[in-house]
Design a protein around this nucleic acid. Structure first.
Length: 256
DNA sequence: ATGGTAGAAACTCTA
């Protein structure tokens, strides 16, 4: 089973990129973030014509998540149980016995702001809820835009980014607590090239200069990590005209 | 040195 995550930064704008990428890459499950679409405006017809069932949890202008699957979808659940949040950031569904969680972690804006405090509070709720999720679903995959670069090698210039939002120590500690629940960063299961990232600012030609951060991740429970055969970042969509500022991440899980 | 771009929506906020 091929699992993928991609922050598309507006599904309306990126629909053609997505459809072409689905046809070329042939993933089984895709988690999308920043769809920026209300559910009534979701391009269900186009996605279904490409061979994918879809569930979605969106809102106007900001946030919005969706899960696409060509192996069916069941037990769809929006949000973090017990955590009231106006932002549509989490969606879960089961595909072939795998519990898939699609997440769009708050950006946090800047250290010390209200949005940063919300990010850390949100992480606490997410962590608590994932601990329960792991207890109920041994085969759990948590894919999305975490808005955290875990390590220095995940940042193009760790000195400049030290203490900044997306790389501050409290955010990295929150990310490590997720790993502490029994989740594994699929990307680090395998040898990877140096200076590989998933997000590059639109400004200052950041992508051309590879001034990026690795903030999009696929976390796998032990049972799934054992079956994981590869994990890679697909840089091609980021190089297209009018791209998302994020690249997709793909993990292959061996069928049982 | 505090820019710069992109998206959505509506002359600003978020990333």
């Amino acid at each position: 089973m091929k699992l993928a995550t991609w922050n598309v930064n507006s599904l309306k704008v990126r629909l053609q990129h997505l459809l072409e990428w689905l046809a070329r890459t042939q993933p089984d499950v895709v988690c999308l973030q920043e769809t920026k679409l209300e559910d009534t405006g979701f391009p269900k017809r186009e996605i279904e014509a490409a061979g994918y069932a879809a569930c979605f949890h969106g809102q106007k202008t900001y946030n919005g998540v969706a899960i696409l699957s060509r192996r069916g979808l069941s037990q769809v659940e929006p949000g973090i149980h017990g955590y009231a949040d106006d932002h549509k950031r989490v969606l879960s569904a089961t595909v072939d016995g795998v519990r898939v969680v699609c997440t769009y972690v708050p950006n946090g804006q800047a250290v010390g702001t209200i949005k940063y405090a919300y990010k850390l509070d949100w992480f606490l709720a997410f962590e608590r809820w994932l601990a329960e999720g792991l207890a109920h679903h041994p085969q759990l995959a948590v894919l999305g835009d975490y808005n955290v670069a875990p390590e220095e090698r995940d940042v193009h210039n760790p000195k400049r980014w030290a203490g900044q939002v997306l790389f501050s120590e409290p955010e990295r500690a929150a990310f490590r607590r997720l790993l502490g629940l029994g989740l594994t960063d699929a990307y680090r299961l395998f040898p990877q090239a140096e200076r590989m990232f998933t997000w590059w600012d639109y400004r200052l030609n950041a992508f051309q200069k590879n001034m990026g951060l690795r903030i999009d991740h696929i976390l796998l429970s032990d049972a799934l990590a054992r079956r994981c055969r590869s994990c890679s970042i697909d840089l091609a969509p980021r190089a297209l005209e009018r791209p998302s500022d994020h690249a997709p991440v793909i993990a292959e899980i061996a069928d049982e």
